[in-house]
């Protein structure tokens, strides 16, 4: 306490902190709760924004991923090449660089979209590269006999792909797509750098308002970890449920 007191004489900020440090030991966890309570609404708003971004980005990533997976499985050499280059580029360049490319680059092209749209777009494109791998291995895991049976029935290539191959491939991909979603959730925190106040962005605001960055970020870390943990359990259950019949084969 003595060292704390001498610091307190020098700066006002430290004085406040010393006092907080003292009461903190007295009140313990209660204080963290009561201190953060007024800001719960803001954090909840941020969390909601994170959920919105991630759900939209997941949908985007699955669409992009399915398209890329189709190209990679196609007979055309050109399409295969384009798809391979796409995946290679977006997996080997940091997401932050990709995000800045779109955030600063799109207005140059005369496309004025807000941070939310830019974030969803960038996440969909990057997530698509990862989702395409997952969906592709889902396609490759399909028993050739199923496709042959569809051909024998006289279904067109298009119908075979959209009604037979894709449903099975996507069903088999639920669990790995879940890991893509969890990755998207973790990556979406980077959107706070382009002024989008999702969960991490709003936590930044709370940390600077309360002067208690450690508690705020520790809670945030726990929140992310428990959220993704629960989500991974739910996804594993969903995957087992959807693939009841084929689980032994996979």
């Amino acid at each position: 306490m003595r060292a704390g007191r001498s610091i307190a004489l020098t700066t006002a900020r430290d004085a406040v902190e010393t006092e907080i440090g003292f009461t903190r030991t007295v009140a313990g966890l209660n204080l963290i709760v009561s201190d953060l309570a007024p800001h719960i609404a803001l954090l909840a708003q941020g969390a909601l924004l994170t959920v919105e971004v991630c759900v939209l980005a997941l949908a985007g990533a699955v669409v992009v991923g399915a398209a890329i997976a189709m190209m990679r499985a196609s007979g055309s050499r050109l399409l295969r090449g384009i798809a391979t280059v796409y995946v290679d580029i977006f997996r080997n360049i940091p997401f932050l660089v990709q995000l800045f490319f779109f955030y600063y680059g799109l207005p140059e092209l005369g496309i004025y979209v807000d941070a939310f749209a830019t974030g969803v777009l960038a996440l969909s494109i990057a997530g698509g590269a990862f989702a395409s791998d997952v969906i592709r291995s889902g396609i490759l895991a399909i028993d050739p006999g199923i496709v042959e049976a569809a051909q024998v029935y006289g279904l067109s290539r298009r119908t075979t792909f959209l009604k037979i191959v894709m449903p099975i491939a996507l069903r088999l991909s639920v669990r790995p797509l879940g890991s893509v979603l969890i990755n998207l959730i973790l990556t979406s925190s980077i959107l706070s750098t382009i002024t989008l106040n999702e969960l991490t962005g709003s936590a930044k605001i709370v940390a600077s308002q309360t002067f208690r960055p450690f508690e705020v970020y520790a809670v945030l870390l726990l929140a992310y970890a428990s959220l993704t943990y629960l989500l991974s359990i739910a996804i594993a259950r969903f995957h087992r449920r959807l693939n009841r019949g084929v689980l032994e084969a996979v």
């Binding site: 991490t200 940390a207 705020v216 870390l221 970890a225 943990y229």
Partner: peptide
């Protein structure tokens, strides 16, 4: 390790860069 793997690196960076100096002075 599970905590580190399942949370954004950005949040970990903030915790170490902003949080730890504030807590331990």
């Amino acid at each position: 390790t599970e905590m580190l793997k399942n949370s954004p690196v950005l949040v970990q960076l903030f915790l170490v860069f902003f949080g730890i100096p504030a807590l331990f002075k």
